[in-house]
């Protein structure tokens, strides 16, 4: 059993990590009251720019940083349109998906089939020798270890610091936040940038550590799954870990079953994660309805999706 379980869970963490980055990124954005549906596009941009940077500099770490920054930079289009111009956030996010798909395909056209320096697996000293746990959690690339740091930090930032309090109050009630002297616009811009940067990093993870090469449209719907995971995790990075690894597990299950010689079509197995995500969404909403935990928890920040303008009363 353990020789099946070990690689399987290891693969679940491996394919869950990009979702984790993207989901936590979107949590930052949505906590400030802005919904960014452009994750898919931003991840593609992060993937292609990260790959290019790694190819040119020969250093995947530079690649990851560049992917991260370009995700943040492109998300500023969304920030400008939705925060400054108060455009419909859903439409702006969708446009970002088209834009990202197109830009990444144009930039990536000469990169198909090229090999760039990528992240290598690093075994953590001593920890990787622990049976099972070592294999599952401590035989990975550097970006996975970074996610171990980043997620708890995000939780602390959002729920235990002043910055987090600002972000959340802007997301719950921008009018009040404005009255007490917070700069709603600046905080939303910053949250969208942070989110975009994490989505870019998630993309760079795919092209520099997971696959590792550039394939057109390589994100394959993970951006949308991340949005679903935000709802599942109830806008909390702690919960996002479970969601992301669960989905990663679904992703890995197909390979694991095939490796054991199961006679199931790869295409049918490919459907699994998406069907599972829909199921997860239904469960989260059902749970919220059943428990009646209050819509404030199940529906996310109160001002989510609503533009804020100082001149208008809401």
């Amino acid at each position: 059993m353990i020789e099946f379980l070990g690689p399987f869970l290891q693969a679940a963490v491996r394919s869950g990590t990009p979702l984790l980055f993207a989901t936590v990124g979107e949590i930052y954005t949505e906590r400030s009251g802005n919904i960014n549906l452009g994750i898919e596009g931003l991840m593609l941009i992060g993937a292609v720019t990260g790959f290019m940077a790694s190819l040119w500099t020969g250093n995947p770490i530079v690649g990851a940083i560049i992917g991260c920054f370009s995700g943040g930079a492109v998300s500023m289009i969304h920030a400008f349109l939705t925060v400054t111009l108060n455009v419909n956030q859903i439409v702006s996010g969708l446009s970002l998906v088209f834009f990202g798909t197109g830009v990444s395909a144009v930039l990536g056209a000469p990169l198909v089939g090229v090999i760039a320096p990528s992240f290598e697996e690093i075994n953590v000293w001593l920890l990787s020798d622990i049976p099972l746990i070592g294999q599952v959690f401590f035989q990975h690339n550097a970006l996975v270890y970074f996610s171990y740091l980043f997620v708890p930090i995000s939780w602390i930032v959002l729920f235990k610091t002043k910055i987090g309090l600002y972000i959340r109050s802007v997301g719950e009630n921008p009018q009040t936040a404005d009255t007490v002297g917070l700069n709603v616009t600046r905080i939303r811009y910053a949250s969208i940038f942070t989110g975009g940067a994490m989505m870019g990093l998630a993309g760079a993870y795919l092209s520099l550590a997971y696959t590792p090469m550039w394939i057109e449209n390589m994100v394959a719907g993970r951006g949308w799954v991340a949005i679903a995971l935000v709802i599942f995790s109830m806008w909390n990075p702690k919960m996002a870990v479970f969601g992301a690894y669960l989905f990663g597990g679904m992703d890995a299950l197909g390979f694991a079953l095939q490796a054991r010689g199961a006679q199931i079509s790869t295409h049918l197995l490919g459907m699994l994660p998406y069907v599972f995500t829909i199921f997860l969404l239904a469960i989260s909403m059902w749970r919220a309805k059943k428990k009646a935990v209050g819509l404030s928890v199940s529906m996310g920040p109160s001002a989510l999706g609503k533009p804020f303008s100082r001149e208008q009363k809401s």
């Binding site: 596009g41 289009i77 349109l81 439409v91 702006s92 969708l94 446009s95 970002l96 998906v97 088209f98 834009f99 990202g100 798909t101 197109g102 830009v103 395909a105 144009v106």
Partner: peptide, 9 residues
């Protein structure tokens, strides 16, 4: 695609 995205923006 890129063009479409820009038209939308």
């Amino acid at each position: 695609h890129m063009f479409e995205g820009m038209v939308l923006f």
